[in-house]
Simulated assay, not measured.
Amino acid sequence: MQSSISDPAARLKERALALGFDAAGIARADEAWPAAERLKAFVELGRHGDMAWMETTLARRAAPTAMWPEARSALVVAMNYGPDHNPLDTLAQRQTGNISVYARGRDYHDLIKSRLKQLAGEVAQITGADVKVFVDTAPLMEKPLAQKAGLGWQGRHTNLVSRDLGSWFFLGTVLTSAALTPDAPEPDHCGSCRACLDICPTNAFPAPYQLDARRCISYLTIESAGPIPAEFRPAMGNRIYGCDDCLAACPWNKFASSASEAALFARAELKGPGLDELAALDDAAFRDVFSGSPVKRSGRDRFVRNVAIAIGNSGEPRLAASLLPLLQDPAPIVRGAAIWALARLDPARFAEEKARLRPSEHDMSVQAEWDERPA
């Protein structure tokens, strides 16, 4: 049934909700904003770590019009992926792996993008203007746009917070050359709360509203392609893909509900997978287990590197046996992590393996792992 609402902006937000999004708002896309300077400072300080793409696309990220000069409005939508339990409970289950809530279901990119395309078609039909669709994969700063559109505010943990959805939601954007009536920006409601800052295991927030990705477990376990710095390994605990601590600590979550989209429900096998089973995954098995999951994007080698570190943090000597095959894994980052973990769990076996394998090791980073831990 066609809407009786005459204002195009209101009609489009109504259609977004009808398509299954949990919130929608509109922002001007063709005006200057302070987000550009904040991002520039973030990169200049080197806090983006190995994410070189942030530096190479810095100019395009400065504003929506830097990427698409015809953009005048942004229709920003949110989709709730809230968990039905406290996701931090699994951190105490040290023999299992903790996967970030957003990655326990199906890949959200596919779900959101298909609906955004439907919504974009309606934007084009109603306004007669050009449109472009974005879901987290283009140089578009979606969080500042979402705040301008009234969906929430960037909290002290730099993520978007909503009074209705807490910290658990995905964003998607339709840019259009149409001039749509914008919503009022959402003001900051963090007050004096420091819950998200104080819970961070690695002190990744140099100051409120600032993140140093190089210290963030989400960055280290997903984006970083090399060895994880030894200073952060113990703090990782059993976090093998991402980290939810700062999101879960947000008091605004008490107003949120759990996800209603079945595709975003946590798969049973990803709520607490056994570390020994995960350590045995080769590339083919990894792709099979994580088919359709965001976890697949990191690749097997980074993932098993994280698993080895979690085993080292488990305090379970029996898991040391699952590290032995990894000492000769083709991937240096896996071998290095397994060496560190074995030294923590079984020093005697570490000494035996060092005598056997160190002489034939040719990778300098792996050699350093052997040599930094005397037998």
Rank of each mutant, 00 (worst) to 15 (best):
Q2V: 10
S6C: 02
A16H: 01
G25M: 10
I26M: 03
E37D: 15
V43R: 06
R47P: 05
A52E: 15
T56K: 15
T57L: 12
R60Y: 02
W68M: 11
A71K: 12
V76G: 03
P83R: 07
P83Y: 05
P83D: 06
N86P: 02
R94F: 11
Q95P: 09
I99P: 11
V101G: 06
V101L: 05
A103C: 13
Y108C: 10
R115V: 01
K117R: 14
A129V: 11
V131Y: 00
T137D: 07
L140W: 08
K148R: 15
W153K: 02
Q154F: 14
N159A: 13
G166Y: 06
A179N: 14
H189T: 08
C216N: 03
C216P: 00
L220T: 06
T221M: 10
E223Q: 03
S224P: 00
R239T: 09
I240L: 07
A248E: 08
A259G: 05
S260Y: 01
E261C: 12
L270F: 14
E277I: 02
A285L: 03
F286G: 01
V307C: 10
I309P: 03
A310R: 10
G315Y: 05
G315M: 13
P317I: 09
A321D: 01
A337C: 06
A341K: 03
E353F: 08
K354Q: 15
S360T: 11
E361T: 07
E369T: 01
E372H: 09
R373W: 05
